[in-house]
């Protein structure tokens, strides 16, 4: 078994967790706030949401479209960020652990069809 406690305290692991957190926490706060803001407007400001932007196109529908946009952008952004930043850091943790533990636990990293 790998020495989990030692890995948890290692600089590589701390760095990975810190970097990932510094993206995931603000992103989660942002999307929940943006979504709940939309829901609050839908609940409490239905007149505003029903106002026309251009003929039958309402403020509500436009704001709804921005929710879709937010999901797609955050999805792709996180995918990129993970491949370029978090995955290499995680690999480092695994490598360091493997060196220390006689390479018994190697992370499987194949068959995803996604290139880093």
């Amino acid at each position: 078994m790998p020495d989990w406690e030692r890995i948890e305290r290692s600089d590589e692991f701390r760095e990975l967790v810190k970097r990932r957190k510094s993206f995931v926490v603000p992103a989660t706060i942002f999307f929940l706030a943006y979504y709940m803001g939309f829901i609050l407007l839908a609940g409490y400001a239905s007149d505003f949401m029903g106002e026309s932007v251009y003929q039958g196109l309402t403020v509500g529908y436009c704001l709804a479209l921005t929710q879709f946009l937010m999901v797609f952008v955050l999805g792709i952004w996180y995918l990129r960020k993970s491949e370029n930043e978090f995955d290499p850091l995680a690999d480092k943790v695994v490598e360091a652990a493997a060196e220390a533990e006689d390479a018994r636990f190697v992370r499987k990293d194949e068959g995803t069809g996604v290139k880093a």
Binding site: L32, Y35, M36, I39, L40, A42, G43, Y44, S46, D47, M49, G50, G56, T58, G60, Y61
Partner: peptide, 23 residues
Amino acid sequence: FSLAPGTYLPKPLDTVSLGLALV
């Protein structure tokens, strides 16, 4: 039918409560 919200979910707090459960 309406292009504005508030027809199927007339109570604002209900809308918020539903939104939270969905997300």
